[in-house]
């Protein structure tokens, strides 16, 4: 599937899901992927990120971070890394984890708020801002987009370098050119 898509779309392609070894990465890159996204494997073996970045270069290593808010209302906000689609807590602080991933060589972070994913209530701007401010690599905000204003907020309020939305496009509520034009009108630099 990766090679069929890579043969038809001439933009950077990131492949994620089940990447556990350098061999998996090699297979994906050979099939035409430009980047791979590592999630669970990084949690269980952080050194895998270092190994992958050393071998293939940071530019093709995206670390996916699934975070959930674990603080009570009124407390200083705190987010933790969760695995298994947001069901299993790991005890890892999300901001510290993001910094560690970048130190180990992650070239980009894909940050998903497991609280917001699928809710259409907008990004968790708190965790997006906290992580964007803490690291020196691009952060892609994900989870919760229901409107085009949410995309704008992710960049302007959350400080994300890029935003991800799936359902609003899949269900044809908006088109990608529409979303890009909307963001550009609000002063965000876009390739239209």
């Amino acid at each position: 599937m990766v090679s069929r898509i890579a043969g038809e779309v001439f933009i950077p392609l990131t492949v994620g899901g089940g990447i556990r070894t350098c061999e998996d990465i090699r297979t994906m890159l050979n099939a035409g992927a430009d980047k791979v996204s590592i999630n669970t494997a990084a949690v269980f073996n952080p050194d895998f990120v270092r190994e992958a970045a050393d071998r293939f270069g940071s530019q093709c290593i995206v670390v996916a971070i699934d975070a959930k808010c674990v603080s009570e209302d009124g407390e200083t906000p705190r987010w933790e890394i969760f695995t298994h689609g947001g069901r299993k807590p790991t005890g890892l602080d999300a901001v510290e984890w993001a910094k560690k991933m970048v130190e180990l060589g992650a070239g980009e972070l894909l940050l998903t708020s497991m609280d917001r994913d699928g809710t259409k209530a907008g990004f968790d701007l708190g965790v997006t801002r906290a992580i964007s401010d803490a690291v020196s690599v691009p952060v892609i905000a994900s989870g919760g987009v229901g409107t085009l204003d949410h995309l704008v907020d992710g960049v302007l309020k959350g400080g994300a370098d890029a935003v991800l939305a799936a359902s609003i496009f899949h269900f044809a509520e908006y088109t990608i050119p529409q979303a890009k034009a909307y963001m550009a009108e609000r002063g965000i630099e876009m390739r239209l």
Partner: peptide
């Protein structure tokens, strides 16, 4: 390098 991508894009044009 990612020769596959270059070749695919050339094939396209």
């Amino acid at each position: 390098g990612n020769l596959h991508s270059v070749a695919k894009a050339l094939e396209h044009v």
